[in-house]
Amino acid sequence: MKRFFPAPWLSLAMWLLWLVLNLSVSPGNLLLGAILGIAAPLMMRKLRPLPIRIRRPGTILRLFLLVGRDVLVSNLAVAWGVLSAGRRPPNSQFIKVPLDLRDANGLAALSMITTVVPGTVWSELALDRSVLLLHVFDLEDEAAFIEHFKSTYERPLMEIFE
């Protein structure tokens, strides 16, 4: 079964998406969607990362809440920084964050978290995955920011994926 359906949930999702995008459940669209749902995962099977093994599922909820809090706080901080830029321009900087996280799935999650939190931009990852270059909109204390980044995002992801 895994040979013909390497990602059954992805196949189902692609088939349903095809039907929704075409706004039709005609026999032709049902067939084309099924072909797409079966063929695309088969052709891209080698591009998929290793299977995910979640070590501590409870940590996911804690991380979700921490990221949600940071999104809200960062939105307010960035908005205030933009509105008060005439009086005090933001201290934008590139910083290098040393990483202990090596799992590809964990790094992908970290990149999404970094993208979601306003005021931070994932700029570059070293080839050996040891250093992350981030752009920060308004940086007050580099060491404190790095410690917050590692303790809030990297360590929980290491608990989940490694």
Rank of each mutant, 00 (worst) to 15 (best):
L31H: 10
R3L: 06
A109E: 04
K96Q: 12
I113C: 09
R62V: 12
G37D: 01
R87Y: 05
I95F: 05
L110T: 03
G33C: 07
Y153C: 02
R3M: 03
V131N: 09
S123F: 09
E159M: 04
S74C: 05
N29C: 04
W18K: 11
L10D: 01
L17I: 10
M1T: 08
N75E: 05
L19Y: 09
M158H: 01
L110E: 03
P8M: 07
I113G: 12
E140A: 14
I54F: 15
L42H: 03
I113F: 05
T115H: 14
R155D: 00
G33W: 00
L21A: 11
L66I: 11
L132V: 06
E162V: 02
R3P: 01
R102Q: 15
A126I: 05
G68M: 05
L32Q: 07
G81H: 10
A108Q: 04
T114E: 14
R69I: 10
P6Y: 00
I113A: 10
L50H: 14
S130A: 12
D141S: 14
P49N: 13
D103R: 00
D138E: 01
F4I: 11
A79V: 11
S26G: 14
V78W: 06
E140H: 14
E124N: 15
G58T: 01
D128T: 12
T120R: 01
S26Y: 00
I95W: 04
D103A: 00
L66K: 11
I60G: 09
G86N: 08
R62I: 14
P49V: 12
L42R: 09
E124I: 00
V25E: 04
Y153Q: 06
M1E: 00
V121F: 08
V117T: 14
T120Y: 01
S24E: 06
P98Q: 12
M44E: 05
M1Q: 05
L12K: 09
N75D: 03
N105P: 01
V117W: 02
S92R: 13
M112R: 11
V121M: 11
I54R: 11
E142P: 04
G33V: 01
F137T: 13
L83E: 01
L110F: 03
L12A: 12
L133I: 04
L127Y: 03
P41S: 09
V116A: 14
R3W: 06
P118C: 09
V131T: 13
V20P: 06
T114K: 09
S11I: 03
M43T: 09
G28I: 11
L134F: 02
G33Q: 04
A13D: 02
L133N: 07
T115W: 07
D141Q: 15
L47A: 15
D70P: 12
V20I: 12
L50V: 12
D70L: 09
L72N: 03
I146W: 03
E147Q: 13
D103L: 00
N105K: 08
R3Q: 06
M43Q: 05
R129T: 05
D70Y: 02
M112C: 14
A143I: 01
R45T: 08
V117I: 15
